[in-house]
């Protein structure tokens, strides 16, 4: 007699990995065969995860059509079971999967659109947290300012893109066929900063060096050191914009 834990593990393997021999031996056929019973759960599992992907990646779906999307989503689901019951966290690897997905090879920008949608979903679902008030930094002396090491606000995502994914995404979302037709989908390496704001989702395109600089700030490189590495006049201005737009998190011990 298997323990409940063994039954559950066999059931999970039968559903998530279609490794069903053990589970089938534990299922009583009654009207519907054991395999048919298990497949009801497996189909629900798969279609639930495909539906979760559809919600995170609507522009990808619209770009390729519902059938192609499902044809890509099902093998992804088969290879990547969710790590959490919170399905807003499911699907982070889909962009990487699409990049390697041979049938989508004709659409080199597809993975970048998926990266953008994942960043947007993560930013939208991020926990609330106070932003760093630039006034707190202004109170420090110059040496302390140079030594300050900041963290990105949880609702901010910075992604490196090879294609003009934001323009594609926007045209697809707005069903703007003229904009789509006019799009030049050639590679255009840049960074995109995605931020949830009180009034919606903000996107800020950053040139490569600007994105590199921002990525260093987000990794906690000290402000003085980051500005030494990036000597151009645009970088202090960009830092000011990030600070003014609340793109850094307030320190944990902050009383704000």
């Amino acid at each position: 007699m298997p323990t409940l834990r063994e039954v559950q593990a066999a059931f999970a393997r039968g559903i998530a990995f279609a490794d069903e021999d053990e589970a089938l031996g534990m299922i009583e056929a009654d009207g519907i065969g054991a395999a048919g019973r298990l497949s009801v759960y497996r189909n629900t599992y798969r279609s639930t995860l495909v539906a979760a992907l559809r919600q995170v990646y609507p522009a990808v779906e619209r770009l390729v059509g519902a059938e192609f999307f499902e044809g890509a989503a099902l093998p992804y689901v088969a290879g990547e079971p969710p790590g959490s019951a919170y399905l807003n966290e499911y699907g982070g690897g889909f962009a990487g999967f699409l990049a390697e997905f041979a049938p989508a090879a004709a659409l080199p920008y597809l993975a970048d659109v998926a990266r953008l949608e994942w960043a947007a979903s993560q930013a939208a679902n991020a926990p609330d947290a106070p932003a760093l008030d630039p006034v707190a930094l202004a109170r420090l002396d110059a040496a302390e300012q140079a030594e300050a090491s900041l963290r990105p606000h949880p609702s901010v995502r910075l992604i490196a893109l090879a294609y003009p994914a934001e323009r594609i995404w926007r045209a697809v979302r707005e069903r703007d066929d003229a904009a789509l037709a006019a799009l030049d989908p050639r590679p255009d390496p840049h960074w995109l900063l995605v931020q949830r704001r009180d009034d919606g989702l903000g996107m800020r395109t950053l040139a490569r060096a600007e994105g590199d600089f921002t990525a260093q700030l987000f990794l906690g490189v000290r402000l003085g050191e980051a500005l030494e590495r990036f000597p151009g006049a645009e970088f202090p201005a960009l830092l000011a914009e990030h600070l003014a737009c609340g793109r850094f998190a307030a320190p944990e011990e902050s009383s704000r």
């Binding site: 619209r62 770009l63 390729v64 059509g65 059938e67 192609f68 049938p103 989508a104 004709a106 659409l107 920008y109 597809l110 594609i168 697809v172 066929d177 789509l180 037709a181 006019a182 799009l183 030049d184 989908p185």
Partner: peptide, 11 residues
Amino acid sequence: PAGDCEKIQGG
């Protein structure tokens, strides 16, 4: 893929 991507592919 059958969808909007065809329109971009034209470009």
